[in-house]
């Protein structure tokens, strides 16, 4: 009986819900790729955007979209979507290569924004970390149940390993969640950054297409951005994508 209950439990646990892929979406995806190959980047872009609304967690879609933006001469938007793709596909070499390729085309010299996962070279995205934490938690509670009835060296050691794994992944996820920054990328060829949005506004510095900034605040049609090192100012929202 116990074996039956456990079998059912694990069957339910590992029965993944396969996302249903619409045939229409598949056709749109194939069409947009064909348009891309034909050089009709504008049409490809609109189709990729249509799909992204329905598959917001597909890093490959963001990557294709970024490629189309790059080919369409929109460097800023391409860098922005490569960054999004990289967050979902942190181990994919093509995404990393294209992001660096696009970054090399921008005019402004700046340090690239790195989040925690990039900083420590952690090869997992946020979702993967979340799954790891949940799986380790499950593992931990299972070991705790076993240790109620059996206590030997292996069980006790496994319990400590489970605690360490859970703690490490949990800490990483917590730090990552709380240190997340909203990234913006300049989309217009030239964008001035002003000290304020009021009448006494003075032009602080100029950014060029592709420059990456951290979005701090938003007000009306203005966005407060920072480049670090006391470089902070307001930029019109039509000159930036975030």
């Amino acid at each position: 009986m116990m074996i039956k209950i456990l079998s059912l439990y694990f069957l339910l646990l590992f029965s993944f819900n396969v996302l249903g892929m619409n045939e229409i979406d598949t056709k749109i995806f194939i069409d947009s790729n064909t348009l891309y190959d034909q050089g009709d980047y504008k049409s490809a872009l609109s189709k990729y955007h249509e799909l992204i609304d329905r598959y917001p967690k597909s890093g490959e879609l963001y990557y294709n979209l970024a490629n189309a933006y790059y080919k369409n001469g929109e460097l800023g938007k391409s860098i922005f979507f490569y960054i999004k793709a990289r967050k979902i596909l942190p181990r994919h070499g093509d995404v990393k290569y294209n992001l660096e390729y696009a970054r090399n085309q921008k005019i402004d010299k700046q340090e690239n924004n790195k989040d925690l996962l990039d900083l420590f070279n952690i090869p997992f995205n946020e979702d993967e970390l979340l799954i790891l934490v949940t799986v380790f938690a499950l593992f931990f509670w299972s070991i705790m149940i076993i240790s109620l009835y059996r206590k030997n060296f292996i069980i006790i050691s496994t319990r400590y390993i489970a605690i360490i794994l859970l703690f490490l992944t949990g800490t990483l996820l917590t730090i990552h969640t709380f240190s997340k920054k909203e990234i913006g990328v300049i989309t217009s060829p030239e964008a001035s950054v002003f000290s304020t949005i009021g009448v006494d506004s003075i032009k602080l510095f100029t950014l060029h297409e592709g420059s990456e900034v951290v979005v701090v605040d938003k007000k009306d049609n203005w966005i407060l951005v920072t480049l670090g090192e006391n470089r902070k100012g307001w930029i019109p929202s039509d000159k930036i994508i975030n």
């Binding site: 396969v18 996302l19 892929m21 979406d25 598949t26 995806f29 194939i30 790729n33 891309y36 799909l51 598959y55 967690k57 597909s58 490959e60 879609l61 990557y63 294709n64 490629n67 189309a68 790059y70 080919k71 070499g93 093509d94 290569y97 294209n98 390729y101 696009a102």
Partner: peptide
Amino acid sequence: LMPIFYHPGVLEG
């Protein structure tokens, strides 16, 4: 640039 993804399976994730 590196080429785009062609396989529709990427939508599945």
